[in-house]
């Protein structure tokens, strides 16, 4: 059987939204985004899609299935990985799959979906999602499935029944090998994801996502591990001292004098 790659991709609110777009509702427990902040595919997950496509570029009979869990989806958003070149899209869609800070249920559902897909050789996912920044769902999936994992990588290659990945370190990288099936998470150092071309966009319009509910997957909600007790905008304690001058150069000179006077430099 040709290699089958599953990419885990999460729909998130645009991470480039300015800090001013965020607020907290009256309960103090729910983060609200004001204005029309669009949905996107989590940036690191797009890097994972790109990693999968590069593996497929090396041998075109390889297959890529994108799996996403949530309560509601913007179809044109979650279809982007298909437009980039993935073959299939599976949506784990259920009111029960609330996007909370507790990753346990999502992990259980994704692991069950991977089982249900049958032959899966490699699971790729972004290193973290830009909403909770939890960086643990793919690791939890690996632990649940009992598969080896390589975390935060900048290059992924498959040869035979082995995955070889470059794990990002502060001063370089490690080349790490694991037997398939395995889970590998991908970081932005991999490089920019490709843009969907017109053919891909047209093809993605014809792809109907497979939708599975919690009941389809036979999963039930585990006892919760984490609860968001409160959310708040970070307190702004900084009083900015704006240095002004006759012109920009003068302001620069005055800044140097002020910092020196404050014994900072």
């Amino acid at each position: 059987m040709p290699l089958h790659i599953v990419v885990l991709a999460k729909q998130v609110t645009d991470s480039e939204a300015p800090a001013s777009a965020y607020s907290v509702d009256a309960t103090g427990k729910r983060v609200v985004l004001q204005g029309s902040v669009p949905f996107i595919v989590n940036g690191f997950d797009e890097n994972a899609v790109e990693a999968a496509l590069r593996i497929k570029d090396a041998a075109p009979d390889r297959r890529i299935t994108v799996v996403s869990a949530g309560t509601e989806f913007a179809l044109d958003v979650v279809k982007k990985p298909v437009a980039m070149g993935a073959e299939a899209l599976v949506l784990l869609q259920d009111g029960a799959f609330q996007n909370t800070i507790d990753p346990l249920f999502t992990v259980r559902a994704l692991a069950a979906a991977i089982h249900k897909l049958g032959q899966v050789d490699l699971v790729l996912a972004g290193r973290q999602a830009s909403d909770w920044d939890n960086s643990q769902v793919p690791l939890g999936v690996a632990e649940t499935l009992g598969w080896p994992v390589i975390h935060v990588t900048q290059r992924v290659d498959v040869s035979g029944a082995t995955v070889r990945a470059h794990r990002v370190l502060p001063d370089g990288h490690e080349v790490v090998e694991a037997p398939l099936p395995a889970v590998v998470t991908v970081s932005n150092e991999l490089g920019s994801p490709r843009y969907p071309n017109m053919r891909g966009i047209m093809a993605s319009k014809r792809v109907q996502p497979t939708v599975w509910t919690a009941a389809d997957l036979g999963v039930s909600r585990p006892a919760p591990a984490l609860e968001l007790a409160a959310a708040a905008l970070p307190k702004r304690t900084v009083e900015t001292e704006l240095i002004k001058g006759d012109d920009d150069a003068d302001a620069g000179r005055k800044l140097a004098m002020r910092l020196r006077e404050a014994r900072l430099l």
């Binding site: 991470s15 939204a17 800090a19 777009a21 965020y22 907290v24 983060v31 800070i101 830009s130 909403d131 909770w132 920044d133 006892a223 919760p224 591990a225 984490l226 609860e227 968001l228 007790a229 409160a230 959310a231 708040a232 905008l233 970070p234 307190k235």
Partner: peptide, 20 residues
């Protein structure tokens, strides 16, 4: 255990209670 941590890239400060 209750922890303080940034979420949404630091745009929000969360207090999280550990239940397990």
């Amino acid at each position: 255990l209750t922890v303080t941590r940034p979420i949404y890239g630091g745009a929000i400060q969360a207090t999280v209670t550990c239940l397990s």
